[in-house]
């Protein structure tokens, strides 16, 4: 089965950890993830600027490792990311900002990517919506 997974909560929210464990279970069960889409505060999960204390679960790092290991299509909503200061190099240059928080394999793109993924997947599973 093909899953699209959307995450709306920040890394310190329990639903972000659940989303990652769910995504791992999807692949471990022989299913497919057609796209990860991070929206609202979920964009912080794609940030390379977060520093987690050494003895705590580092979710942004785990997400990155997961995406890289499985070569997943991982999209961060560009509008949500700009508002929250989670910029990639191109957007940082466009808006004259110094901080670059997002690097490949993460990609900043629009909400159309969420709709496209939801249309093409067998299931859309959302985490962190309240």
């Amino acid at each position: 089965m093909k899953f699209a997974i959307a995450l709306f909560a920040p890394p310190h929210a329990p639903s972000s950890r659940r989303a990652l464990r769910f995504a791992e279970a999807v692949l471990a069960g022989g299913h497919e993830i057609n796209r990860l889409f991070f929206y609202q505060d979920g964009v912080h999960n794609a940030s390379g600027s977060i520093v987690t204390p050494q003895d705590e679960l580092d979710l942004p790092a785990q997400w990155r490792a997961f995406v890289e290991r499985h070569k997943l299509d991982a999209v961060v909503c560009i509008a949500a990311a700009l508002r929250r200061g989670v910029l990639d190099a191109q957007e940082a240059q466009r808006y004259g900002r110094t901080a670059i928080a997002v690097t490949p394999p993460w990609e900043l793109s629009g909400l159309g990517q969420l709709h496209e993924a939801a249309q093409q997947a067998d299931r859309l599973v959302c985490f962190g919506g309240v």
Binding site: Y39, Q40, A79, G112, H115
Partner: peptide, 29 residues
């Protein structure tokens, strides 16, 4: 068909606007 359930008041943060943006993006497509 997608149903968007919007549960936030308009002036309590980004929730209302960001729910609406999903609806408008879907409509645009």
């Amino acid at each position: 068909a997608m149903l968007i359930v919007s549960r936030h008041s308009p002036w309590s943060g980004l929730g209302a606007r960001e729910a609406l943006d999903i609806a408008l993006a879907g409509g645009a497509f």
